[in-house]
Amino acid sequence: MDVTFRIRRLNPEIPGKDKPYWQEFKLSDVEPTDRVLEMLHRIKWEQDGTLAFRRSCAHGVCGSDAMRINGVNRLACKVLVKDLGTKIQVEPILGLPVLKDLIVDMEPFFAHYRQVMPFFVNDTPLPEDGRERLQSPQDRELFDDTTKCILCACCTTACPSFWANGSYVGPAAIVQAHRFIFDSRDQAAADRLDILAEPDGVWRCRTIFNCTPACPREIEITKAIGEVKLAIMRGSPEGIIQVQEIKHEA
C-alpha cells in the first residue's frame, strides 16, 4: 500500500528551516504490519538522510522514540501502519524544546525524574546470613505496575498540566516515586511524599487521564498518581493498595 507521511521538521542550522514546518513524504510497498519506525528509517535511508530522530531497540523497551503520531503520543517502534491508515502525521512530543526534527531536549524531563529521589534507600543493616532482604510476593505485587516504566516521556508530554507549567514534575516522575514509595523494603517514602506534596508535585495533576492511554507500557498512571495523593493525605503508604492473593506453584 501507499502511505503519505507528514512530518513536523526543524533544522536549527539552516536558515529558513529553523522554524517548525511540515514536509510530506510518500512511501510505496508499505506492509500493514510495518512499524512507523521502519517507515521513518525508509524515509531517512531512501529519501532524506537529514531527517533526525532518536531510536534504539525498536521493540518498545528502550523508550527512545516517543513521538506524537496522528495526534497521540506513542513509541514509533510500537505502532503499526495498519492501526493508523494511509495518512500518518508525525511530530515531536509536546512540552519539551525541539532541538532538531523529532528530537526534543530531554534534560528537563530527566531533571524532574532526579527530583523525586528515584533510587532505593534502606540504611538498616543487611541480613546477617549475607542473603537477600525478604519480601512477600504480595508486597512485591504492590508496586509491580510502576516498575515497568521506561522513561520514554509519553505520559508527561501528554499531560496538559505539564504543558501549562513545565515546573510540574509530571506523571513519569510520580510513577518512579510510586515504585519506591510502595516498596516494603524502602525507607524514604516520607521524604518522597514531602517532595511530591510541594506545589510542583502531585497536586498539579488534575486527573485528566491523558497519561494513562499514552503509556506504551500500559501502566495505570492516573491510578498510581491517585495512590500517591492518598498516601500524602494519610501521611503513609500503608494499606492504600490492595492486591489479590497470589497463587504460587509448589
Binding site: 534502606n122 543487611l126 549475607g130 542473603r131 525478604l134 510476593p137 512485591r140 515504585r179 516498596d183
Partner: peptide, 19 residues
C-alpha cells in the same frame, strides 16, 4: 545478585520471600 537485591532490584519472590 544479592547485591543487586540490596540495591533495591525488584526480583519476583518465592512464597518465603526469597528471590
Amino acid at each position: 545478585v544479592i547485591e543487586l537485591e540490596h540495591m533495591g532490584l525488584p526480583f519476583d519472590r518465592t512464597p518465603e520471600g526469597r528471590i
